[in-house]
């Protein structure tokens, strides 16, 4: 378990350091799948961090800003620290460092981003939607990622998730059920 987390943290760090957006996105997707299977919010947090870092790398107004080099090195330093804490089996410090990175990403986007909807919050919605698409319930996906339920519902409504899986009972059949209950 700890070796998985160390490996995931280091892969995120290396991919971020080398600006490998494809790898960061792939890691993010793999981690949310694993998190959903294990109901593991730490793996989910790593997925959100990986997703957010990829998104940051894709935004010219962030990476071309003068302070980006410093921001990037701070995040890499934190990922390294997190990994070292895990290697020393200090899980609490590892989690604190992850929270610190999440907070850092949130604050960077809040100050440099163009949208009021924060990049880190978007990451929660996006990855919660994936967890829901895999088969977790809505609230389980919310609980795993910390996404807002209303925003997640709206996001899911804009996907084809519900069009790919037709319910065994259609509107008419369920409506008939209501008619029986309403004693019509």
């Amino acid at each position: 378990m700890i070796s998985d987390l160390v490996s995931a943290t280091e892969k995120i760090m290396n991919s971020f350091e080398s600006n490998d957006q494809v790898k960061l996105r792939q890691l993010s997707n793999d981690l949310i799948e694993e998190a959903a299977l294990k109901s593991d919010s730490v793996l989910a947090q790593l997925s959100l961090i990986s997703y957010s870092l990829q998104k940051m790398l894709s935004k010219p107004h962030i990476i071309e800003a003068g302070k980006w080099i410093k921001i990037k090195s701070t995040i890499i330093f934190s990922l390294k620290k997190a990994s070292d804490h895990l290697k020393n089996k200090n899980f609490n410090e590892f989690k604190k460092e992850l929270d610190h990175i999440s907070d850092k990403v949130f604050r960077v986007d809040a100050s440099m981003g163009h949208y009021t909807a924060n990049l880190y919050e978007k990451a929660k919605i996006k990855q919660a939607s994936r967890a829901y698409a895999f088969g977790l319930s809505l609230m389980q996906a919310v609980n795993l990622t910390g996404a807002n339920e209303k925003e997640l519902l709206f996001y899911i409504g804009g996907t084809k998730i519900h069009d790919k899986e037709k319910s065994i009972k259609g509107i008419n059949e369920r409506k008939k059920l209501l008619e029986g209950i309403f004693n019509e």
Binding site: L138, L152, L153, F154, I156, G157, G158, H162, D163, E165, K166, S167, G170, I171, N172
Partner: peptide
Amino acid sequence: KFNGCAVSIEEINDYLSA
């Protein structure tokens, strides 16, 4: 539907057609 209710476009159109 577009706010997350798990119903498909096909189901809605089937229903509305009647």
